[in-house]
Write a protein that binds this DNA or RNA. Structure first.
Ligand SMILES: [Mn+2]
Ligand SMILES: [Mn+2]
Ligand SMILES: [Zn+2]
Ligand SMILES: [Zn+2]
Lengths: 143, 143
DNA sequence: TTATTATTGATAACAAATATCAATATCAAG
DNA sequence: CTTGATATTGATATTTGTTATCAATAATAA
């Protein structure tokens, strides 16, 4: 079961925008926060469809977009792959090590790197807003 | 005019693979190394077509792929944007600051960051192969 | 010069993301 | 609890960027 805070963020966002809550929305929210991180629409759709064959792909897609809008999800594009989504709630920023063999995502954070990035931006008279650091290589299980 | 080394790398690669050199290939090579960095197929195609209306989009695309294969170009995907290509010849690795307003790419390199990345990978029992660091924000001309 | 076959350019096919739309469900108001 | 306005859904069409196809042409080696 997922924290009530998460549900409330979503429900409040929906109400505030004059939208409506639906069975599908609750299902998608639940499934998304229970599923593997960095999931594609396709996979999330499949997992929901297993229990609710009536669900539509477009509905899942649309609601993932909504989840991004209200800050409960982040969209990520890795190379030519399909867009992935990762649930976001009360966790700080992180970067990824991505295994070239098995595709595993390892979440990492290095405060020194983050600080140096800010320095680097400043040095170039550049105001950093967000960043993406991906290290591709071979994970311990694959070597 | 571009260094003869570049032309030779391309020509040698072509010969070694049993391929053939063509007027279009020379044109594309020239145009690519004269054009703005981080260019899309579409833009490169347009710039070539201005002088040679007969050129085909697919030909430009195919040859950019060839250039990547022989190490004279790097492909880069930024979010949902079209694939970009950047010429590569005798220059070391760099990362990018990307302006959210004007789209400008600023090339940067920070050796400390690179070292820390390797450390971070090692700490996770991960063999780094390549990485991508993009810092999005506002460039000095846009703020 | 000739034969072989890689290349080209036009266009078709493909895949992912998004838009469309009629049927349906939500929910505020009475 | 109805009812009416309208947001949502699910099926499918459209769009977009990329890649494949193929007949005509051009590049190379013999
Ligand atoms: Mn993550
Ligand atoms: Mn660059
Ligand atoms: Zn792995
Ligand atoms: Zn700018």
């Amino acid at each position: 079961m997922l924290p009530n805070d998460v549900k409330n963020i979503f429900r409040n966002y929906i109400r505030e925008k004059g939208l409506r809550n639906t069975r599908q929305r609750e299902e998608i929210l639940d499934a998304f926060f229970s599923a593997e991180k960095h999931i594609t629409v396709e996979k999330l759709f499949a997992s929901i469809k297993a229990k609710n064959p009536g669900i539509g792909y477009a509905t899942v897609h649309r609601n993932l977009t909504l989840l991004c809008e209200c800050g409960l999800a982040d969209e990520m594009k890795i190379g030519r792959q399909k867009t992935r989504y990762e649930p976001k709630f009360g966790q700080k920023h992180h970067d990824h090590l991505i295994c070239l063999k098995c595709g595993r995502f390892i979440e990492v954070n290095d405060n020194k790197i983050e600080k140096l990035q800010d320095k680097l931006a400043e040095l170039n008279d550049f105001i950093p807003v967000r960043h993406k650091l991906e290290i591709y290589g071979i994970c311990k299980d694959c070597k």
